[in-house]
Simulated assay, not measured.
Amino acid sequence: MSGTGALRKTVTRRGALLLALAVPGAVAAQAAPLVRVEVWQDPTCGCCEGWVRHMRAAGFDLAVRKVADVRPMKAANGVPEALWSCHTAMVDGYVVEGHVPAADLRRLLAERPQARGLSAPGMPPSSSGMDIPGTPYEVVLFGTPGGERTWARH
Rank of each mutant, 00 (worst) to 15 (best):
Trp151Arg: 09
Gly129Lys: 02
Thr150Glu: 13
Gln30Phe: 14
Asp69Met: 11
Val37Asp: 01
Thr135Ala: 12
Gln114Asn: 10
Pro72Ile: 11
Ala16Val: 13
Pro101Ser: 04
Pro124Leu: 11
Val79Gln: 06
Ser128Lys: 02
Ser126Gln: 07
Leu109Trp: 04
Arg53Leu: 02
Leu141Arg: 03
Trp151Leu: 05
Thr88Gln: 08
Leu17Ala: 14
Met73Asn: 14
Tyr137Gln: 06
Pro72Leu: 07
Leu108Lys: 10
Gly117His: 09
Met73Gln: 15
Gly134Met: 09
Ala68Tyr: 11
Asp61Ser: 12
Asn77Val: 07
Trp40Cys: 03
Leu17Glu: 10
Ala120Lys: 04
Val95Ser: 02
Leu7Tyr: 11
Trp51Pro: 11
Gly117Arg: 06
Ala115Thr: 02
Ser126Asp: 08
Arg36Ala: 15
Val11Glu: 01
Val67Thr: 08
Leu109Tyr: 13
Ala58Ser: 13
Ala31Leu: 15
His154Lys: 14
Arg13Ser: 07
Pro101Asn: 10
Pro24Asp: 02
Glu138Tyr: 02
Arg106Tyr: 08
Val79Thr: 13
Met123Cys: 05
Phe60Lys: 07
Gly147Tyr: 08
Val79Arg: 13
Asp42Asn: 15
Thr12Ile: 14
Ala68Arg: 13
Ile132Asp: 13
His154Met: 15
Ala102Phe: 08
Ser119Glu: 13
Pro145Glu: 14
Pro133His: 06
Val95Asp: 04
Leu34Met: 11
Val70Phe: 04
Met123Gln: 10
Leu141Ser: 06
Arg107Ile: 02
Val95Pro: 01
Ser119Asn: 06
Leu109Gln: 05
Val27Pro: 01
Gln41Cys: 08
Val140Trp: 01
Phe142Ala: 07
Gln41Asp: 09
Arg116Lys: 15
Ala103Cys: 04
Glu49Ala: 12
Gly147Phe: 09
Glu81His: 11
Gly78Leu: 07
Ala110Val: 00
Gly147Cys: 04
Arg65Lys: 12
Leu7Trp: 10
Ala22Pro: 00
Leu7Pro: 05
Thr10Gly: 01
Gly98Trp: 05
Leu7Gly: 08
Gly93Ser: 01
Ala68Gly: 14
Phe142Leu: 07
Asp131Ile: 00
His99Tyr: 02
Met1Lys: 09
Ala110Cys: 00
Gln41Phe: 13
Leu17Ile: 15
Met73Leu: 10
Thr135Cys: 03
Val64Thr: 09
Val79Tyr: 10
Val11Ala: 11
Pro133Cys: 03
Leu17Pro: 01
Leu118Ile: 06
His154Val: 05
Ala31Tyr: 09
Leu83Ser: 03
Ala22Val: 02
Asp104Val: 01
Lys66Cys: 08
Leu17Asn: 10
Cys48Leu: 01
Glu49Met: 08
Cys48Asn: 00
Ser85Lys: 06
